[in-house]
Amino acid sequence: MRICNFDGARPLGAPKDWDQHLDGACGVLPVLDAVDEQSGLNFMYSLWRPTAEDLAALQAGGALRLGIMGSSHPVINMAVVAPDVCQQAGVVEIPD
């Protein structure tokens, strides 16, 4: 999966007290804050684009896995964003 940058995104870095030597590398993730209309709570959205290998694995019956660090699972949502919406948002993959 490739992380994407997009219009309106802000950089989200490592959590407070993150120790790269103990916890490993933590890059920057472009996110967009949006208030959920039903709950009034903030969601941070990021965009990811699957590689050709990812798509092949999914088409062959693979699945997406979501990893959350911690002992409780936050509320999340996942969706596919239409190509025209990606184009309007200026979505670009961040090179490795």
Results as ranks from 00 to 15, higher is better:
D23K: 11
P50A: 08
M78P: 01
G67Q: 11
Q20P: 08
Q38N: 10
D54P: 00
C4H: 07
M78E: 12
E53F: 08
M69K: 11
P74W: 02
D96S: 13
D54N: 03
G8C: 03
N77C: 15
D23W: 07
A57N: 05
V92Q: 15
D7Y: 06
H73R: 14
G8Q: 02
E93H: 08
N42K: 10
W18C: 01
L22G: 11
G61T: 02
L29C: 09
A57D: 00
H21S: 15
V92A: 15
H73Y: 14
H21W: 14
P74M: 06
Q20D: 14
I76S: 05
V75F: 14
P15S: 03
L22R: 15
G40F: 01
H21M: 14
I76D: 05
P30T: 02
L64W: 06
G24C: 04
G67K: 12
F43K: 03
I68C: 06
L64D: 02
T51L: 08
A63I: 03
M1D: 07
A89C: 11
Q88C: 09
E93D: 13
R2E: 14
D84M: 11
L55N: 14
I68R: 04
L32R: 00
W48L: 09
A9L: 00
G27P: 01
P74A: 08
P15V: 03
S71E: 12
G61H: 06
A79W: 09
V91Y: 12
E37A: 07
P83I: 03
Q87P: 01
V28H: 03
S71T: 12
C86I: 01
Q87M: 09
A63Q: 12
V31C: 04
Q59I: 03
I68F: 05
V92E: 11
V35K: 07
G62C: 02
R49K: 14
A34P: 02
A9Q: 00
D54R: 05
D36G: 03
A63C: 06
M1G: 11
